[in-house]
Structures are given as C-alpha cells and as structure tokens.
Amino acid sequence: MTTKILAVDDSRTMRAMIQTALTDAGFDVDLAEDGIDGLDKLGGSDPDLVITDINMPRLDGFGMIEGVRERPECASLPILVLTTESGEELKQRARTAGATGWIVKPFDAEKLVAVINRLVV
C-alpha cells in the first residue's frame, strides 16, 4: 500500500513544494493549511506520517502535534516538523508536544524522502 503523508503548512508555495517532492517519490500526499485544518483532515486522510510547519495561523505546529497525540489511534504516528526555525528551545517544545523529528527548511527532496523512509514501516 502506498504510504500516505499529511503535510500541513500555511504557505501555498511550501505546500506545493512538499507535494511535488513527495508525490514524485511515490507517496500519497494530503495537504492542510494550518493546525486546525490539519486536525480536521487527519481522520479522513488516515496518514502514515504527518509533516507540519510550526508558524501557522489559527493553530500552530505545537498545537497541531498535541492534537494529533491526543488521539489514541495516532499515539505512535510519526510527526516530522519541517520549519525554518532551528532554535533549541522550540525543538524541545516540539519534542515535548510529541514530535518525532525536526527538519529545517529549505529541504532537499531526496533527503526528506530518505528521512520519511526511516520513519515509516
């Protein structure tokens, strides 16, 4: 079965980039525009991995991650943070919220795919 990824980012440019990179690598990609949209789509999308930005309107990445982890069926869903932020404090917050990994933008498509392949069965 194709690996399904839900990518959450408020920038449509970034969404398009993630989608292009991951679709080319053979993943199924669902997109959401912010944390609330991401949580809304989580059920229908049932992804194998979530990629999320941090700075987003309405509900930011931390809130999004917490929301995902609150769902029992998503307790062990890998969540990658993909952001331009690289501060240690923010990383620690993301980790506490339940993030699996942290990748700093700009991202290299191949390498992002490699990371994803290490996180999904």
């Binding site: 240690e88 990994g101 942290w102 700093v104 700009p106 991202f107 390498k111």
Partner: peptide
C-alpha cells in the same frame, strides 16, 4: 535546497 547541518535531526 541546501540542507542545514542540524541538531536533533536524522542523518541527512
């Protein structure tokens, strides 16, 4: 797409 050397990230 130059990837940053980063801490707390996988080997890229």
């Amino acid at each position: 797409f130059e990837v940053q050397a980063m801490d707390f990230s996988l080997d890229l």
